[in-house]
Structure formats: C-alpha cells, structure tokens
C-alpha cells in the first residue's frame, strides 16, 4: 500500500507549478495513492537485465541539413502573448537565480 502524504503532494505540486488548495491537495493524496497501488503490480516484476524502451522505433541519427528556413515574424510570434513590451514578452519579476 503506497501512501503519498499531503506534504509530498504539496512538494510535487510546487515542482509542477500547480497552485492547489488544501482540499485539492488532500484529494490528490488519496487519488495518487490509489493509482500507485495499481502500479504496484508492475513494480514487483523482475526486470533485471531488461533494457528500458524509451522509444517504440529502433531509429538512429535523424538529422537535418544546416539550412535556414523561414520562421515567424516578430508580430506573428508575439500575437498570442499575454503581455508585450518593446517587442519582447513581458513577465512579472523573476525571483531567484537561474537554475
């Protein structure tokens, strides 16, 4: 029986940048725990020596030539932006360092 505490859920929500109420955190704690119980069936499988499959196709070395292609104009790029200033995307102040 896996249990994910409300505190763990709170930490994960911060990593995922989701603002959730205490009630939502509590509900998610239960739901995530139930799902992990379901996943338990594969956690118990012996997979030693089995390589992971990240990708369903055995493809390698897909490359494009270094040739410019037309992109978007600044106007097209900025058209959907919630806030623009001086040809750039405006965001509220950034706290803390670049990771």
């Amino acid at each position: 029986m896996s249990r994910i505490s409300v505190e763990e859920v709170r930490h994960v929500a911060l990593l995922a940048r989701l603002e959730l109420s205490d009630d939502e955190l509590a509900v998610l704690s239960g739901e995530l725990s139930a799902l992990l119980d379901h996943v338990e069936q594969i956690r118990r499988l012996d997979t030693s020596g089995v390589p992971p499959t990240a990708h369903p196709l055995p493809m390698r070395n897909v490359l494009r030539e270094d040739e410019p292609r037309p992109g978007l104009s600044a106007a097209e790029a900025l058209a959907a932006a919630p806030a623009v200033e001086d040809g750039r995307y405006s965001v509220p102040s950034i706290l803390g360092d670049e990771p």
């Binding site: 911060l14 940048r17 989701l18 603002e19 932006a81 995307y89 965001v91 509220p92 950034i94």
Partner: peptide, 24 residues
C-alpha cells in the same frame, strides 16, 4: 506557463504567475 501564449493569471512575480495560471 502564461508567458508566451494562452491564459495568464497575473501575479507580482513570475513564479506565482506560473502557479496560478496553471492551477486555474
């Protein structure tokens, strides 16, 4: 994340803006 397109729920700093935008 509310920066380039789509919904933005504004806040005083970028991080809180991300949190609220995605939460809502």
């Amino acid at each position: 994340d509310g920066v380039r397109y789509g919904l933005r729920v504004d806040a005083g700093d970028a991080r809180t803006m991300n949190l609220r935008t995605r939460g809502a």
